[in-house]
Amino acid sequence: MAFDIDKYTATSVSVHWDDLDFESFREHPLPADSLRTLRYMTDVEYHTVCYTRDLLTTPSHRDPDVGAFMTMWNREEFWHGEALAAVLGMHGITVAYDQLRATRLKLGWKDKLDPIKQSALGALVGSDFIAVHMAWGAANEWSAITAYNRMAELEQNPVLAELLRRIAKQEARHVAFYTSQARDRLAASTKAQKLTRFALRRFWAPVGSTIMKRDDVVHVMTQLMTGEHGAKAARRVDHQIAALPGLHGLTIVQDALRGLGVAV
């Protein structure tokens, strides 16, 4: 079914948590390994704007539906960052804009070259390049939902679980947008399929890999994606990605986990 962009924009809200008892974290604090994972998630949500930048350098920004979606999506993801930062705040962990800035500054020349590469590629490949971004976005959003659900499952903390449920619900709408875009664009072009397949297989890495330290990536993936349930969740994301036109057989999540030395 086609994604209804008008309905989405009209109902896009920032995630709310003022009705949740965050004070309960003082009495029942989350363990350090989960706080480390939540910190990772917070940074990734705040850094969404960096991914937006990559999308905007391609011809996709000319599509009005994509522009409308990105406006709302960016804001929703920013608020996921704010919500998770509030949880961390209850544990004495402050996420300041200056720290986020420092993380981005550390990326150095590689980060400066990214938009140059992206726009050059976008110009060379043309509109088929949008399919890559849409499939990539779908893979990221499926991973995000999986990560939030896994975190809720592992922690069994009712307040955290409810917040993560609300965040995952919004991520599900993002998935709907990305998959509807990716499906249409992939179905319409064999070239887009080949390009997307190549890009995902060759370059896809878990969300946050490019901005966070490898240690942190390994920690998060080990906590969320290992064990019986974790491995099953990783397989499920791979199945969802592989169901897109022309992407059958891809196992990018499990490949990435193996690449990180995380048992699957």
């Binding site: 705040y46 905007l56 804009y97 800035r101 981005r104």
Partner: peptide
């Protein structure tokens, strides 16, 4: 966003 402005989180 393609310039260093994107690094300033605020």
């Amino acid at each position: 966003l393609v310039t260093p402005t994107h690094k300033d989180a605020r």
